[in-house]
C-alpha cells in the first residue's frame, strides 16, 4: 500500500460511522465504544476488522454478499465503496432486516447518496443538495469540503468526497 492510500478499515468506518449513533441509541454499544469509533473516524485511524465486524454485523454480511456478486475481495477499498455507494440502498429498498420498519423519510436518510455541498451553514455543518432537496450534513469527516464539492452522504454526515 502506498503512503496516503486508504485502508478498507478506514473507508468502512467512514461510511458506517453514522449508524454508530443509532447502534448506541439501541444500546448495542456503550458510550465508551461509541467515542472510540468517533475518534477513529475523525482521525482516520484503523480499527481492526474483527472489531468492526462485531459492531456492524449486518453491513459485513451485505458487504460480503455484494462483493461476491461483483467478484471483488470483500475486504478491499473498492469492495467497501461498491457496497455502500452502489448496493446499500438495494437492501433498504428490499426491506432487509430492520429497514422494514422504516418509512420513506427514514429510508431516505439511511441511503448513501451523492450530493453537492451548497453552502456552509456554520463551522462543521453544511447544506447538501440531493436530487431536488437539501438537507443539513455534518462535515467533520470531510473538513475541507467547500461549496460546489461533490460528496457522498449517509444519514446526517458527509462521509467522503466523490
Amino acid at each position: 500500500m502506498e503512503p496516503g492510500d486508504l485502508a478498507p478499515e478506514q473507508v468502512f468506518l467512514r461510511y458506517a460511522f453514522p449508524c454508530a449513533h443509532l447502534i448506541l441509541e439501541d444500546k448495542r454499544i456503550s458510550q465508551k465504544q461509541f467515542e472510540y469509533l468517533r475518534r477513529a473516524a475523525l482521525k482516520g485511524e484503523r480499527i481492526p476488522k474483527l472489531k468492526l465486524e462485531k459492531i456492524f454485523p449486518a453491513a459485513f454480511r451485505r458487504l460480503k454478499e455484494t462483493s461476491a456478486m461483483s467478484g471483488l475481495d470483500y475486504w478491499s477499498v473498492e469492495a467497501v465503496r461498491n457496497y455502500f455507494r452502489n448496493h446499500h440502498e438495494d437492501y433498504i429498498k428490499a426491506n432487509d432486516g430492520s429497514y422494514k420498519m422504516f418509512g420513506p423519510t427514514l429510508k431516505g436518510l439511511c441511503k448513501v447518496r451523492k450530493a453537492r455541498i451548497e453552502r456552509i451553514i456554520r463551522k462543521g455543518i453544511g447544506e447538501a443538495k440531493v436530487g431536488n432537496s437539501t438537507r443539513p450534513v455534518f462535515l467533520n469527516l470531510v473538513p475541507d469540503a467547500k461549496p460546489g464539492d461533490e460528496v457522498y452522504i449517509h444519514y446526517a454526515y458527509a462521509v467522503e468526497k466523490a
Binding site: 420498519m101 418509512g103 423519510t105 436518510l109 455543518i125
Partner: peptide, 22 residues
Amino acid sequence: VVQAKFIISKVPEKEAKEVIRL
C-alpha cells in the same frame, strides 16, 4: 429525527406514527 443532538429531518406524522407503532 435527531442525530448527534441536532434535529436533522422532519418526518411526516403518518410515517412517524407508523414507525413508532412498529
